[in-house]
Amino acid sequence: MDEKPFETPYPGYDVLAKWDGPSWNDATRRVVADRLENVPPRRFLGEAEYRLLRSVIETILPQPERSEAARIPVEAFVDAMLWNNEGSGTRYADAPPPREAWRRGLAAIAAEAERRHGRSFETLTAEERHALLAAIDAGETDPAAWEGLHPRRFFRHVLLKEAVKIYYAHPLAWNEIGFGGPAAPRGYVRLGPDMRDPWEAEEVRPPQALEGAP
């Protein structure tokens, strides 16, 4: 497992600083304000399921540098998506509908933790949690726990996908990757390599080295 925490190449960059400027239109302001101010309460998942989900999210997208109040609350938006029963347009023929898939998938993660460690997922160390999810992705699972759900497909296409869709739609995430953020009506002028408009993020240090392809 890979411990090195993330460090942004763009410290000091804040897309919200452009809030009142020409890069943000009203529609965008309304949407982002809603996302920041109205973090949805837990309504769909049970308390225990929600605790587990949060622990899984912290393993998938650890945010050690942020306080509780400053954290991107990915789990809250997952719960809201399930509560609203939002569809994605696709239901794989051999997979249950989204609500059922999430319930079964979370239960299976809990069961895998009990099976391997005799403890609940939330009480495992960060390393153990990471290793457990990696094992699920690799298909080293107990078929009985998954009740017909495909472990890798659930992990990648349901869990990871939804988590990053929520995380990277948050202004804090836009900041950390140096994304220009909302850009209407004003877009950009300088398009070439190593060119930057004054209202774009400045790279203060190079992104952290990668050890080969993902």
């Binding site: 497992m1 890979d2 411990e3 090195k4 925490p5 993330f6 460090e7 942004t8 190449p9 393993t59 998938i60 997208l61 650890p62 990471h130 999810l133 992705d137 890798r152 992990f155 990648r156 990871l160 990053v164 990277y168 995430a173 950390e176 990757i177 140096g178 994304f179 993020a201 790279e203 992104p207 952290q208 990668l210 993902p214």
Partner: peptide
């Protein structure tokens, strides 16, 4: 299937 710190570091190369 990338996740964890590694995922955030990968995304740090977005630009």
């Amino acid at each position: 299937g990338v996740f964890g710190h590694r995922l955030r570091r990968w995304m740090g190369h977005y630009n």
